[in-house]
């Protein structure tokens, strides 16, 4: 959960990118890290395997500037998507304020997206959080592959599979080209800050 320092007027907000293995969570953060250098104070931290798979998390602190006199510090995290790492995925979710669910739009990943989302639901329950209440944005990633003739799930199918009950805001995106990466980020930051303000005031 967000931490608010009334003395220094700083609000820390934790946003987690969640989704199945290789869906592009780390690539989202890498793009943000490259594109918004002036809003990023320190190096991106990546705890990964030799094969560049996330082992524990990626961490990127992002400065939003001031809202109502408060300095907003957004802490972006990714979870490791590989099935075997659920214990660490859960640890990263501790105290989460907002979630971007990154789905892999490749047709062959359809089942994996659904399983990952179901597990997110369970993992949140273990913290007495609800996927229906927490600020959430859906990102349907890798749509650039359509141009390369790789079978891609139509957005209507992804919406039906993943978002029919959640009704979360959603974006088609490409983390490699950067398409809608910023839009996704802006949306989750806005939803999360609104939800924190509601809790506070």
């Amino acid at each position: 959960m967000s931490f608010i320092n009334l003395k220094e007027k700083v609000v820390q907000v934790k946003i987690v990118y969640y989704g199945p293995g290789r869906c592009g969570k780390t690539t989202n953060l890498e793009y943000i890290n490259r594109t918004y250098r002036n809003q990023i104070v320190s190096e991106m931290v990546s705890l990964k395997t030799h094969g560049d798979r996330t082992l524990f998390f990626d961490f990127l602190p992002f400065n939003m500037g001031k809202i109502k006199g408060y300095d907003i510090k957004i802490q972006l995290y990714t979870v490791p998507g590989q099935v075997k790492y659920n214990a660490t995925r859960k640890l990263v979710l501790r105290g989460v304020d907002g979630i971007v669910f990154v789905a892999d739009a490749m047709a062959k990943q359809r089942e994996k997206n659904i399983r990952s989302l179901n597990q997110l639901h369970e993992n949140l329950l273990s913290y007495k959080e609800s996927i229906f209440r927490i600020p959430l944005v859906m990102q349907y990633n890798k749509i650039d592959l359509k141009e390369h003739g790789i079978p891609i799930l139509p957005t209507e199918v992804l919406q039906k599979d993943l978002n029919s009950r959640l009704n979360a805001p959603y974006f088609e995106a490409s983390a490699v080209t950067g398409y809608n990466v910023a839009a996704t980020l802006k949306k989750i930051i806005a939803s999360t800050i609104i939800s924190i303000q509601k809790k506070l005031f």
């Binding site: 320092n5 934790k14 104070v41 320190s42 961490f59 602190p61 802490q75």
Partner: peptide, 24 residues
């Protein structure tokens, strides 16, 4: 806190650490 937020940080003024990454 256990979510990785910083409640407060104090140093001796000589050593500067990147406390946000450190906390995470």
């Amino acid at each position: 806190d256990m979510a990785g937020n910083i409640i407060t940080a104090k140093d001796n003024g000589r050593n500067k650490y990147d406390v946000y990454s450190f906390a995470a």
